[in-house]
Lab assay of single mutants.
Amino acid sequence: MQFKLIINGKTLKGEITIEAVDAAEAEKFFKQYANDNGIDGEWTYDDATKTFTVTE
């Protein structure tokens, strides 16, 4: 399945899409990606669109 991350950071904005087995695997990848890029904010997930959003 495809999952999307929308980044609304103070210094980094954009979107990335990955293939993952389930939402838990996608969330783990996205949170590591955000951590690696210094993004720390509020997370939301929309199951209907398979979209995670992080907002700083």
Rank of each mutant, 00 (worst) to 15 (best):
F3I: 03
D40F: 13
T53G: 04
F52N: 00
T49S: 07
Y33K: 05
A48V: 11
I39P: 02
E56Q: 11
N8F: 11
N37D: 03
T44M: 14
D36A: 13
F30C: 02
G41Q: 02
A24M: 08
D47F: 05
D46Q: 10
Q2C: 02
K4I: 11
I39E: 02
K28R: 11
I6E: 10
M1K: 08
L5W: 03
T51E: 06
D36C: 03
M1R: 09
K50R: 08
A34T: 15
V21H: 11
E19A: 06
E42N: 02
I7Y: 09
A48H: 12
W43P: 01
K10M: 03
T51L: 14
N37H: 08
E19L: 11
L5D: 00
A20Y: 09
N8L: 11
N35D: 12
G14V: 09
N35M: 13
Q32D: 12
L5T: 01
M1V: 06
I39L: 08
I7E: 01
F3V: 04
G14C: 02
N37A: 13
K31T: 04
T49F: 07
G41P: 01
N35L: 14
K50W: 11
T53P: 00
L5C: 02
G41R: 01
A34H: 01
G14I: 10
Q32F: 08
T53W: 12
K31C: 03
K50Q: 07
N37Q: 14
E27H: 09
A34Q: 05
A24S: 05
E15Y: 14
D46A: 09
F3G: 00
E27G: 08
T51Q: 09
G14F: 12
V54H: 01
K10S: 12
T17H: 15
K4A: 08
A24W: 14
I18H: 09
I7A: 06
T55C: 09
T17P: 06
Q32K: 11
K28L: 06
E15Q: 05
E42D: 14
M1E: 12
F3L: 03
T53R: 13
F52S: 01
T11R: 04
D36E: 10
I39C: 02
E19I: 06
Q2E: 14
T53Q: 12
L12Y: 08
K13V: 05
D47T: 13
Q2V: 14
K10R: 08
T53K: 13
V21A: 05
F30L: 11
N37L: 08
E25L: 07
E42C: 08
D46S: 15
A24T: 06
I7V: 11
A24N: 12
D46M: 08
G9M: 05
T17S: 15
I16C: 02
K50E: 05
D47I: 12
V21F: 08
D22Q: 14
A23R: 12
G14P: 07
W43I: 15
V21C: 04
Q2G: 11
V54Q: 01
G14E: 11
T17L: 07
I16N: 15
A34Y: 08
Y33M: 07
F29Q: 07
L5M: 08
A26R: 00
T55K: 15
T49K: 05
E15V: 13
T53M: 15
A34R: 01
E42F: 06
F3W: 14
I6L: 14
E27K: 06
I18G: 03
F52L: 02
N35C: 04
Y33D: 01
F30R: 00
T11E: 06
A26D: 00
Y33G: 01
Y45S: 01
T44E: 09
T55Y: 06
F52Q: 00
I39F: 15
Q32E: 05
I39T: 04
F52D: 00
Q2M: 15
G38R: 14
K13C: 03
T49C: 03
E27D: 05
Q32S: 06
G14D: 05
K13A: 14
A24P: 04
D40R: 07
F29I: 09
I16H: 04
D40C: 11
G9H: 03
A23D: 13
T11C: 04
T55D: 05
W43N: 00
F30D: 00
T49G: 08
E25D: 14
G14Q: 13
T44I: 13
E15G: 04
K10N: 03
D22W: 05
I7H: 06
G9W: 11
G38Y: 08
K4F: 09
K28S: 15
N37F: 08
D36G: 14
E56S: 10
D47C: 05
A20W: 04
T53E: 05
D22Y: 12
D22I: 04
T51N: 11
N8K: 05
A26I: 01
K10V: 07
G38V: 12
E25M: 08
M1Q: 12
G41F: 05
I39V: 07
N37M: 14
V21N: 09
I6C: 05
N8Q: 10
D47Y: 08
A20E: 11
V54C: 03
K50P: 01
Y33A: 06
K31I: 06
V21I: 14
N8W: 09
T49N: 07
I7T: 10
I6K: 06
I7P: 01
M1F: 06
F30G: 02
D40T: 08
I16R: 09
A20G: 11
K50G: 08
I39K: 02
N35E: 14
W43V: 07
F29E: 09
Y45L: 03
F30A: 13
F52A: 01
E56H: 15
E56A: 14
T55N: 13
I16K: 14
K31M: 09
W43F: 10
D40E: 05
D40N: 12
E27L: 06
I6R: 07
T53H: 10
T53L: 07
G9E: 11
K28W: 06
E56D: 04
D22E: 13
D22L: 04
E15A: 10
W43G: 00
I18Y: 10
A34N: 09
D47V: 07
D46V: 06
I6W: 04
G41H: 02
K10G: 06
E19C: 06
A34I: 05
F52R: 00
E27S: 04
N37I: 14
A26Q: 00
I7Q: 02
A48M: 05
G41I: 01
E19T: 06
G9T: 15
T44L: 12
T17I: 09
K50S: 08
N8M: 04
A24F: 09
K31A: 07
L12V: 15
K13M: 15
M1G: 11
T49R: 09
F3Y: 10
I18M: 05
T51G: 03
N35R: 13
K13I: 08
D22V: 04
N35G: 14
F29Y: 05
G38N: 04
K4H: 06
F29K: 15
A23V: 13
E15F: 10
Q2K: 03
E15D: 15
G14M: 12
L5E: 00
E19K: 03
T11D: 05
A26L: 00
T11A: 07
I39G: 01
D46R: 04
Q32V: 11
W43H: 01
Y33R: 02
I16T: 11
D40Q: 11
F30N: 00
E56K: 09
A48K: 14
I16A: 12
Y45R: 03
E56V: 05
I16F: 05
A20M: 07
N35Y: 11
G9Q: 09
E15T: 12
T17G: 09
V21G: 09
A23Y: 04
I39A: 04
D46N: 07
T17F: 04
G9Y: 05
A26P: 01
Q2P: 05
A34C: 02
I18R: 13
Y33C: 02
D47K: 09
T51K: 13
T44V: 13
E25R: 03
E15C: 04
E56L: 08
G41S: 02
E27P: 00
W43C: 01
T44K: 15
E56G: 13
T49M: 12
K50D: 08
G41L: 03
T49Y: 15
I7C: 02
